[in-house]
Computed example of a mutant assay.
Amino acid sequence: MTEAPTRREPAPVRHFTRITDITLAALTLVFFVAVALATEVQNPWRGPIPLGLFLGALLLVRRRWPMTVLLLSIGGIAVYHLTGHWSPPGWIWPAAVAYFTAATTPLVRWVAAIGLAQLAYSAVDARWVLDRNPARYLIHVAGEGLLLAILVAAGLTYAAAMRLRERLRETGRRAHAAEERLRVSHEVHDIIAHTLAVVGVQLNVAADALEEKDPAVSAAALRLAKNVRNRAMTDLRSLVTVLRDDPAGTAPQADLASLDTLIADTRAAGLEVTLDEHGDRAAVPAVTAVAVHRVVQESLANTLRHAGASRAEVTIGYRPRSVTVEITDNGRGAPGGADVTEGHGLTGMRERVNALGGALTAGPVPGGFAVRADIPVAGSTA
């Protein structure tokens, strides 16, 4: 029979349990001393007070060695009784705490066995009551048996509740990790889509320049493609870290401060882009800023890949309780005004905005195509 391993609790919980155990130990000693003085026990320092000290000290380590504390508590009470002392009225309290604590461990069968052995000893020890008052004897034995059953059941219930709480915590951690991985998959898609769009345009420029025997233009296009690729690889390395078990060390995500670089890359790819901002971008919290950046990034990538546009306008309005993002271009919309078929990019944008309580619309407008997102500011009551 070995002690059950104890799980390390957070510091505030450990401090509370330590204070609780010290309080129980102090109350045990005070109770034994009070009973000894009230009943005018002769030489209390040779009887109940040492027993109170012993049982109180055991309560201080009951969580670390629950079965050892139970055995020593019951053994100490038995030795005290066998040496000719009457059982002090307060012994049931520390013994009950020891039974409950031990019953919360996987060694509950041993706890029941110890309890049954003590119950049998108590029944034999009180046999003199049987001849004088059978009803009192029955109540005595049945009461101790009922108390033992209640203590074991309470310990089992408490242990089951703690296991359930831990499972719920683990389920919550796994759900959060799954949500984080889904978010990261959207981030990866946005980065790759934008990078491939810009790099693809620059490679076409480089190829055309080579055919026209203009190496300077070709070299400039290839350098820009390389720079965009390098920035994308840095972002991807930081995001892939989140997909591992330990997300520590993850680099900051793209935010509003990266919009200027994003716009510059898109302009270099041949798309004339204007950025019009209203309000204070510094007041936007990080989670909203990331969503704004990704909406602009994916929209411009779609414009480069599919729209055949030459011009795009990005308008962002920062308000205290929401951010409005609108990207319009002069490219071709769906043929004949048909409904837009959403790909992974548009679906990812919509899911990202919806997750923050916002709304996203996308579709043809006179003269081109428009994407609009209304995103509440995290923490606002709007």
Score class of each variant (00 low, 15 high):
P94Y: 02
W110L: 13
E9I: 07
A175I: 07
Q297G: 07
A120L: 15
L275P: 03
Q253G: 09
R229D: 12
V228P: 11
A254C: 13
G270V: 08
G367F: 04
P12C: 08
P5C: 09
A78P: 01
A159W: 08
L119Y: 03
A254V: 08
V296G: 12
R352W: 01
H306D: 07
R173K: 02
A26M: 07
L304S: 04
H186M: 05
I150R: 00
L138V: 12
G379E: 09
A355Y: 06
L243N: 10
L70Y: 01
I263H: 14
E326S: 11
L262M: 14
A268E: 14
I263N: 12
G336S: 15
E40H: 11
L146S: 06
G337C: 12
N330I: 00
T17F: 05
P12R: 01
I19Q: 05
A248Y: 06
P10S: 10
F369R: 03
L82P: 00
G368I: 00
L182R: 09
A282Q: 15
V69D: 10
A57L: 15
L29S: 03
I49L: 05
A153C: 02
R46P: 00
V314E: 06
A142G: 05
V79K: 05
R46M: 13
V205T: 04
E277Y: 13
G155W: 07
E40R: 14
R319Y: 12
G90P: 08
R7H: 07
V295R: 01
A103M: 14
F369N: 02
T266H: 11
V242A: 09
V377R: 03
G155V: 01
